[in-house]
Design a protein around this nucleic acid. Structure first.
Lengths: 135, 135
DNA sequence: CTTCATGCAAAGCTTTTGCATTTCC
DNA sequence: GGAAATGCAAAAGCTTTGCATGAAG
């Protein structure tokens, strides 16, 4: 588990996410790296993104009905996803204190973590919609 | 959009979710219905589950890295997903008031809705893990 | 009779996996 | 040199889609 090897590819994946400065999908990372390292495997990118998330170097933002995203922000925070284009961005909101304590009937479940996910429409898509209406 | 036809299949799908009394996946609904209506199409089930969710008759619980679930509970509530078996159940927790108001910098995004999703380990899987350790 | 939904199969998209080869320690 | 990661391709899992046929209004 903890005995992981340091490989070039793992560094490449990590640095790619740092350089891209967005909430990137695994495929975006793969395409990004393929330019300079054409032999890198998609499986390797997926594997390393997950490993890096487990290790805490990256954060995996799970997206239903779409590709998962990865980012580098270390502080805990929430995300909003545009229902039109699917873009994910950070939400500036304090964490809700003691959220786990509010759970009453647990059905015997051990609660481990939670995530709040928002949906909305980003400025770019809002503009596009306006234009379509006026067009 | 709003001019939808009432079809037998749509009723079947709705009733199936009501009868199954769980957070069911589209495929589970399909298998359930196929017993009595062997010619029903998987696409039809998917289409009607989405239509019924849009209409408010069902609630779609989006699950990353897994099949989406549908249930009938009309009151707003939250969900917890077992990280071992993937089962989804309701969480008994009051809604958090004014959650949307807590958002500070919106980057110009129009916020529409939010969802809180918990992760945990269900009693059944916890037992299984214990047995494996002691075995 | 026109339009929409169905059934079926195929394709789409994201992710995982099997395996020979290479790399790391 | 032994174990683990890679690259490649194939498969898996969930969902959507194209199209001819059939049902609804």
């Amino acid at each position: 588990m903890t005995n992981r090897r340091n490989t070039i590819q793992k560094d490449l994946v990590k640095n790619a996410v740092y350089e891209m400065k967005r909430h990137v999908t695994a495929n975006e990372v793969y395409e990004f790296l393929k330019k300079e390292y054409p032999t890198i495997g998609k499986g390797t990118v997926y594997r390393n993104l997950d490993i890096l998330s487990e290790e805490g170097a990256l954060r995996k933002v799970e997206v239903p009905d779409g590709a998962n995203r990865f980012d580098i922000t270390l502080k805990n925070h929430y995300h909003v996803r545009c229902i039109k284009c699917g873009e994910v961005s950070d939400v500036d909101m304090e964490e809700i204190p003691d959220l786990m304590k509010r759970i009453h009937d647990t059905h015997g479940i051990d609660f481990l973590e939670y995530d709040i996910s928002f949906k909305g429409i980003c400025p770019r898509c809002r503009e596009k919609m306006k234009e379509e209406q006026n067009g």
